[in-house]
Nucleic acid binder design. Structure first.
Length: 624
DNA sequence: TTAGGGTTAG
């Protein structure tokens, strides 16, 4: 130890250090090099270790001249194992998560003590900065200190710095740091990928993922979660399958991400497989895994299995309860939703804003007007929850569906926040059911501003006019659509048979078995007519003859998917369909009858909710 | 003793 400290050093004289002394010691020195020589002498003379004060000397050297840095660095490493700094770090670590600003105060005290921070101390301080929105400058100062102390080759610390910059959204700095660091590892890439996915920069994230030398389960999970977040669940599933193929074992977080993708896609088979996998590896003890599992089953049309997962959970959070309540609501089981809320209250779980969205949804879909009003009031008064746009949307839907259109409009006008397209769309929906042209026009005036390219609204208004016998006005709406360049979103439906997803697009006929599907439909149509089915051509918003409109109706994607399901699955099998738009009136009527004729349960997930057709009736009770 | 990914609405 002594010999290395005695290495001759030739540091230039530093005038501001003339006649200085170290605090709590009798060492006086005139320059950093003088201090180093004194230090060497002390070591040589066999002075007690406590009087050598490595950190103090190191800090003076480090903060004086660049040529003294290496000596400082050397001394620092001597003091790094000091039990004292370990204690400081322990406190810093605790505070960096529980009270970041106190962690920074403590770090400041450490700097003015006779100890030097080590890489751990700096790491905790940076973590504290990352959690305080106003501390970018402090983080930069610590970065400077890290350079001065010679910690810059430390990969761990550099990763913390990349994370610190990225958490402030200072991506130019984060990237510079990432590119300039002498050595990077999988964590460095993971930090960058995580930030890029959060920012929606999926292509850049993918580029990084593709070039990184080594990938960990976190690298895969970050990207999969990113694809889920940015509404590309297909790519998420594709990546998950690839991850399994290359032999990386998914963990709880991966499972959460891929289950969310399954929920979006309605991919029940994969969801079930992931469920089994999670069960095998003990992931079902994790609340988030179970919450996502509940959501997956709900969105794949399996409320009962979702409830089983819910019932078997060892611990439930407000998220578990809210997911289940919302699940009942969108499956038309409003009474179950309300019952579960009662249980939730008795269990002492405090509802959150999302819980109330589920409850209000349940009420509006069951026509429980007074109950819905009570929930809205209770949310504000009993739980101090400020209504969000979703709550207003549910309330307008509740009032409009109940036929209280004037009250609904009044409610919108009194809203504390700006109404959005969903709110006005709910009023428009009510205007259609109750044949209120005036309300439809009022809603569309707002919607043209808020959501001008959404074809659905124009369709509804045109139907309102057609219902009122105002065919000229209905035609005007179609012209308006053309003038505004509004394109009708093509309707598509999917059905999984033997693990293969079959997609049907309205009006397109590129399915391999299309001829047989059409033949089966024609046969079915005969039976449908016998049972009183009359095609409702009012949903076809095209300028054409009635007979042509009927042809268009018969090629609606959900009809084709159902017919395909009937012909390619054994009798009694439940038919599960996913649709990108809402089910139209005509398909709804047809599917009710088909469930009766074919003695099949048909479950359709449309963009808003589920319809479960069984024995000629729908779970939505024709109220959707 | 230090860094990186996750849940319910719309």
């Amino acid at each position: 130890m002594a010999s290395s400290c005695l290495t001759p050093l030739s540091s230039p004289l530093c005038s501001q250090y003339s006649s200085l002394s170290l605090p709590n010691s009798n060492i006086a020195f005139s320059s950093p090099s003088h201090l180093q020589q004194l230090h060497s002498l002390l070591i040589k003379s066999g002075a007690p270790i406590s009087s050598l004060s490595f950190p103090q000397i190191a800090s003076v050297c480090a903060l004086s001249s660049p040529s003294a840095f290496s000596y400082a660095r050397h001394l620092f490493h001597r003091s790094a194992d000091s039990p004292e700094i370990f204690l400081w770090n322990t406190h810093l670590n605790t505070l960096s998560s529980s009270s970041p600003s106190d962690a920074l105060l403590l770090f400041n005290r450490l700097l003015s003590s006779n100890l030097l921070p080590n890489t751990f101390s700096c790491s905790f301080a940076l973590k504290a900065c990352s959690q305080l929105s106003h501390c970018l400058l402090t983080g930069k100062t610590i970065h400077a200190l890290i350079l001065k102390l010679g910690f810059d080759p430390d990969v761990f610390l550099n990763n913390t710095l990349v994370h610190m910059y990225s958490s402030f959204g200072a991506m130019a700095d984060a990237r510079l740091m990432f590119e300039k660091m002498p050595k990077s590892d999988a964590v460095s890439y993971n930090i960058m990928i995580a930030r890029l996915t959060k920012d929606g920069e999926m292509e850049l994230a993918r580029e990084m993922f593709d070039v990184m030398p080594e990938r960990s389960v976190r690298s895969w999970t970050s990207l999969i979660a990113g694809y889920v977040q940015w509404k590309n669940p297909r790519e998420a599933v594709r990546l998950f399958v690839e991850m399994e193929e290359v032999g990386v074992r998914p963990n709880e977080v991966t499972v959460v991400a891929v289950l969310a993708a399954c929920a979006d896609l309605g991919a029940l088979d994969l969801g079930k497989r992931v469920h089994q996998y999670g069960n095998r590896f003990g992931f079902l003890k994790n609340v988030r895994v179970c919450n996502t599992l509940i959501d997956m089953y709900i969105k794949c049309g399996c409320v009962q299995i979702a409830r089983k997962v819910f019932d078997e959970m060892a611990e439930r959070t407000v998220v578990s309860w809210s997911a289940m309540i919302h699940g009942y609501a969108i499956h038309g089981q409003g009474d179950d939703a309300l019952e579960l809320f009662e249980e939730m209250r008795k269990a002492g779980i405090r509802p959150n804003p999302v819980t109330f969205v589920g409850l209000l949804h349940a009420c509006s879909h069951m026509g429980l007007l007074e109950q819905g009003r009570k929930f809205f009031q209770s949310m504000i008064c009993d739980y101090n929850i400020v209504p969000e746009i979703e709550h207003y949307g549910c309330m307008v839907d509740l009032l409009s569906r109940a036929g209280l259109l004037d009250e609904s409009l009044d409610f919108i006008k009194k809203m504390q926040i700006k109404p959005n397209g969903v709110v006005w769309g709910a009023l428009l929906g009510g205007a259609r059911v109750y044949k209120r042209v005036d309300m439809g026009e009022e809603a569309i005036r707002q919607l043209i501003d808020l959501d001008p390219l959404n074809d659905g609204y124009y369709v509804v208004l045109s139907n309102i006019y057609a219902d009122a016998g105002r065919f000229d006005d209905a035609a005007k709406v179609r012209r308006l659509m053309r003038n505004k360049g509004v394109k009708k979103t093509p309707g598509w439906s999917t059905i999984a048979v033997d693990g293969v997803i079959h997609e049907f697009v309205a009006g397109e006929s590129d399915h391999a078995q299309v001829e047989e599907i059409y033949r089966r439909w024609d046969d079915l149509l005969v039976e449908l007519r016998v049972r009183g089915y009359v095609p409702d051509t009012s949903v076809v918003l095209l300028d054409m003859a009635e007979s042509e409109k009927e042809s268009v109706l018969y090629r609606h994607s959900e009809k084709l998917a159902v017919v395909f399901g009937l012909m390619s699955t054994p009798p009694g099998t439940v038919i599960r369909i996913m649709k990108n738009l809402r089910v139209c009136n005509d398909c709804h009527a047809a599917l009710k009858l088909i469930s009766e004729i074919a003695k099949r349960e048909i479950i359709v997930r449309d963009r808003n909710r589920f319809h479960c057709f069984r024995d000629g009736v729908c779970s939505c009770r024709d109220y959707w």
